[in-house]
Simulated assay, not measured.
Amino acid sequence: MNKRSDPGLVRPYVKAGGRLRASQRLALIALVVPGGGTMPDPGPEHGQIMALFGTQGTMSVAEIAAYIGVPPSVTRILVSDLIDHGCLAVHTADRPDTSVLEEVLRGLHKLVA
């Protein structure tokens, strides 16, 4: 029988409470912001995520995964938990004015031509 060399190693599905799917549909580029709610019994990873927002204002799911060292699929589940309890919210940005983007594109074309 193989023994693990790192006794602190925890399988990702354990960190997600055995769940394989998040309750929210979150893209890795989805931006989340603090929501002000509280979670009754947060796990250690939930606490790590919330601690990040003490120093950061808005973060993507991918950034959160990188900072806490958890696979993105697990991070989606953990972030979904926090959204469900109102601790985090998905940031929805207004669509940019396309006329500004078209002007920038024309300027770039002039630079290359």
Rank of each mutant, 00 (worst) to 15 (best):
G36D: 01
T38V: 14
V90G: 00
E102C: 03
V100Q: 10
T58H: 05
D6M: 05
I68D: 11
N2C: 01
V14M: 10
Q48H: 11
G18A: 03
A27K: 13
L20Y: 07
S23G: 11
M39E: 07
T92K: 11
V10F: 06
R95V: 06
L111T: 05
R95N: 04
Q56F: 15
Q24C: 10
L108M: 13
P34N: 07
P7I: 13
H46Q: 11
G35P: 00
G8D: 13
N2Y: 08
M50K: 08
D6N: 15
E45P: 01
A27N: 12
I49Y: 04
K3S: 10
G69Q: 09
M50P: 01
T75E: 07
A93G: 05
E103D: 13
P34C: 03
Y13N: 08
D84W: 01
L20C: 01
A113M: 05
A113E: 13
V61G: 04
K3H: 08
C87N: 04
P96M: 10
T75P: 04
P34Q: 11
D84Q: 12
L108H: 08
L28W: 06
P71D: 12
V112T: 12
G107I: 02
A62R: 14
D81P: 00
K15H: 03
M59C: 05
Q48M: 13
T92R: 15
D84M: 06
L52P: 06
L9Y: 14
Q48F: 05
L101K: 09
E45G: 00
V14A: 13
G17V: 07
Q56N: 13
Q48W: 05
R19N: 10
L78D: 02
A22V: 07
G17E: 08
Y67E: 15
I68Y: 11
G86D: 06
M50A: 11
A65M: 05
L9H: 09
S5K: 13
P42V: 06
P44G: 10
S5E: 12
P96I: 11
L26F: 06
P7S: 12
P72T: 13
V100Y: 06
A62F: 04
A113S: 14
T58Y: 00
G17K: 07
L108K: 11
